[in-house]
Measured scan of single mutants.
Amino acid sequence: RTAFSSEQLARLKREFNENRYLTERRRQQLSSELGLNEAQIKIWFQNKRA
Rank of each mutant, 00 (worst) to 15 (best):
T2M: 11
L9D: 05
A50E: 10
Q29E: 12
E7I: 07
Q29G: 04
R11N: 04
E24Y: 08
S5K: 04
R11G: 06
T23C: 05
E38G: 06
A3F: 13
L9V: 08
S6E: 14
E15G: 02
G35H: 07
R11P: 01
Q40I: 15
L9Y: 05
I43V: 08
I43Q: 13
I41R: 00
T23F: 02
A10D: 11
R49N: 12
R49L: 13
E15C: 04
T23K: 03
K13G: 08
L34K: 01
L9C: 11
E18D: 08
N19M: 05
S5P: 02
Q40N: 05
Q28R: 12
W44F: 08
F4R: 02
N37I: 05
R26E: 06
R26K: 11
G35M: 06
L36Y: 01
A10L: 10
S6P: 14
A50H: 10
S5E: 03
N47P: 02
L12V: 01
E15I: 05
N17H: 10
S5W: 03
I43P: 00
F16C: 03
N47T: 09
Q28E: 08
R26W: 03
N37Q: 11
N47C: 13
N19P: 02
Q8N: 03
L12C: 03
S5N: 10
A39V: 12
K48Y: 14
R27I: 15
R49I: 12
Q28C: 08
K42T: 14
A3H: 13
K42D: 15
K48H: 11
Q8H: 05
F4M: 09
S6N: 10
E38C: 05
R27A: 15
L9Q: 06
Q46V: 07
R27E: 07
E18M: 10
S5V: 03
Q40D: 15
A10K: 08
K48M: 15
F45A: 01
N17I: 09
N37Y: 06
R25I: 11
Y21L: 07
Q28L: 10
K42C: 14
A3T: 11
N37F: 07
R14Q: 14
E33S: 04
Q46K: 12
A50G: 07
L30R: 00
S31K: 04
E7F: 08
A10Y: 06
A10R: 08
E33L: 06
E7T: 09
E33F: 03
R11T: 07
N37A: 13
E33Q: 05
I41L: 07
R27P: 02
N17S: 11
Q40S: 11
Q8I: 10
A3E: 14
L30M: 04
G35P: 00
L30W: 01
R25G: 12
S32Q: 14
T2K: 10
A39S: 11
W44Q: 00
Q40P: 02
A39Q: 14
R27V: 15
R27Y: 12
S32N: 08
N19A: 04
I43A: 12
R25M: 10
R27S: 15
A10T: 07
W44H: 01
